[in-house]
């Protein structure tokens, strides 16, 4: 049911080597895939985030496309304005892709996203979620999961609240297309970008992108961690059409316990058994809710 192969990505690279990402950077891998599918004929809007830096400091740049930078909370509205402005000057073809981090999506950018979603602005909003403000040194965001260390939730006061459910928030706006994806399933990611490109209106893609620096994980397991997030059902791969039609894209044969995902990450080092059980339980509850919405019996 899922295209897990690298599949038919363009051989052309739109992301150049020598960029400013840290080694093992999940957002950099995500961008490489996104660009291979969507770069041609698109404008990319980037608010303050890791990608403000990765895209290059003047006069260097790492993306072979048009990149417009904008203030932190402004991405969704700026993207909508670019699209409306292009239409006003007679260009209805160019795709506008906003690429924001979890801070610019879950936190400071949320109002703008809600407005753009309500107006059904004709843009693709991609959130690359590394679950904290990583660009500035791992301060917590509302995407930071329960039990995680961050510079502003240091042990023993690690994050005590659950991660915000951004997919449900976006879906509640009844937008034409919303999907989750990871860099461990590039075929699935590619398909979802493609579907977004073929859909009109507000499209949202939520990509989990591990950050070795902030998560305290080895740089060479970024893809593996992304896969574990799916196999433990902590980050299910699914789509929501028109805010109502849910579809699970991947049902793991055997579910792995969440600890398999948590263990390699130093940000969860302070978790005790009970807390891990709590995470396991909330993952199972979320999964049940999703299965219920998709009519899946598993």
């Amino acid at each position: 049911m899922i295209n897990t192969l690298v599949g038919d990505f363009s051989r052309e690279e739109f992301m150049l080597s020598g960029h400013n990402a840290c080694s093992g950077c999940g957002p950099a891998i995500a961008m490489r895939f996104i660009m291979k599918v969507a770069a041609s004929g698109a404008v990319v809007v980037i608010p303050a985030s890791c990608w403000s830096i990765i895209s290059g400091v003047v006069p260097l740049r790492s993306l072979k496309t048009v990149v417009l930078h904008c203030p932190f909370p402004a991405a969704a509205a700026t993207g909508g304005g670019i699209k409306k402005g292009l239409e006003a000057v007679g260009d209805s073809r160019t795709q506008v892709i906003v690429l924001a981090g979890d801070g610019g999506t879950f936190d400071i950018g949320l109002q703008g996203i809600s407005g753009a979603a309500e107006r059904n602005e004709d843009i693709i909003f991609i959130c690359y979620d590394n679950e904290a403000y990583m660009n500035t040194g791992t301060q917590k965001s509302s995407a930071t999961p329960y039990g995680s260390y961050s510079a502003t939730t240091p042990a023993p006061k690690v994050k005590s609240d659950p991660k915000k459910d951004i997919m449900e928030i976006v879906a509640a706006h009844r937008v034409p297309y919303a999907a989750t994806a990871t860099i461990a399933f590039p075929g699935d990611l590619s398909q979802k970008i493609q579907r977004a490109l073929e859909t009109k209106g507000f499209r949202f893609i939520h990509i989990l992108t591990p950050c070795p620096e902030g998560w305290g994980s080895p740089a060479d397991i970024t893809v593996k961690l992304s896969r574990l997030a799916v196999l433990t059902r902590l980050f299910p791969l699914y789509e929501i059409k028109n805010g109502a039609e849910y579809k699970l894209n991947f049902l793991p044969e055997d579910y792995l316990p969440v600890n398999e995902y948590l263990k390699p990450q130093k940000r969860f080092a302070s978790l005790d058994k009970l807390q891990i059980e709590h995470i396991q339980e909330s993952v199972e509850n979320h999964w049940k809710e999703l299965c219920c919405k998709t009519g899946t019996r598993k």
Binding site: V45, L68, C70, P71, P73, A74, A76, A77, T78, G79, G80, G81, I82, K83, K84, G85, L86, E87, A88, V89, D91, Q111, G112, S114, G115, A116, E118, R119
Partner: peptide
């Protein structure tokens, strides 16, 4: 022209920054 009613002044000017980048 287009008239777009947004959810805040913040988004109003952000929107025009976008539209103005596009040449409108």
């Amino acid at each position: 022209g287009e008239y777009v009613s947004v959810e805040s002044e913040y988004s109003a000017l952000s929107y025009l920054i976008g539209a103005s980048y596009s040449g409108a």
